[in-house]
């Protein structure tokens, strides 16, 4: 893993303090999350203390320290979505996946997160599944997304495994 990390660092960055956030973004993009082991190497590479790397990484909502599921579901909590029923969408997602917001299913299939706003407010409420936005959702449509009640990602579900 360290070899891979060093390749990511050396082929994309010069190693300055200014690059700390882009470095963390790139590492997360490549590895899916920020592994504990990577933090020390990032610190050394950027020339800052490890505490600084943690300080920055924990500040921003984008960074995560645990592995992510194969499918990432982000429920929009924007104002437009909220007034058009986003809380019920989140409830239904939690019921369907049997996990809470911020968690990943045991089989590493799904990670459920919320996001402040994905900017598709005209089509609220919406959810971002991987890179695709599902718009104008209802709890019923959420069930369909997973191919029927309890049929997590099963036949007929729109979310591909």
């Amino acid at each position: 893993m360290i070899v891979r990390l060093n390749t990511i660092l050396q082929s994309n960055f010069k190693g300055s303090k200014e690059e700390l956030i882009p470095i963390l973004q790139k590492v997360q993009e490549e590895m899916g999350f920020l592994p504990k082991e990577a933090m020390y190497n990032i610190a050394k590479f950027a020339g800052v203390p490890e505490s600084k790397v943690y300080a920055v990484a924990t500040f921003y909502a984008q960074f995560r320290f645990t592995p992510i599921g194969r499918n990432k579901i982000m429920v929009c909590r924007g104002t437009a979505c909220h007034v058009r029923g986003a809380p019920r969408i989140l409830d239904e997602m939690e019921t369907q996946l049997k996990i809470k917001e911020g968690e990943t299913t045991a089989d590493m299939e799904y990670t459920l997160e919320t996001v402040a706003c994905i900017g598709a407010c005209g089509l609220a409420p919406c959810v971002m599944v991987n890179k695709k936005v599902e718009a104008k959702l209802t709890p019923k449509k959420v069930v369909e997304l997973f191919g029927g009640k309890g049929g997590k990602g099963g036949k007929g579900g729109k979310i591909e495994n």
Binding site: K17, E18, L20, P22, L24, Y60, A61, A116
Partner: peptide, 26 residues
Amino acid sequence: IKEGAGAFVCGEETALIASIEGERGM
């Protein structure tokens, strides 16, 4: 281009600057 990393407070001018400098956006 600098990509934001998800902090609403970075809409504030001095916090945004701190973020570009690679700091916590405070």
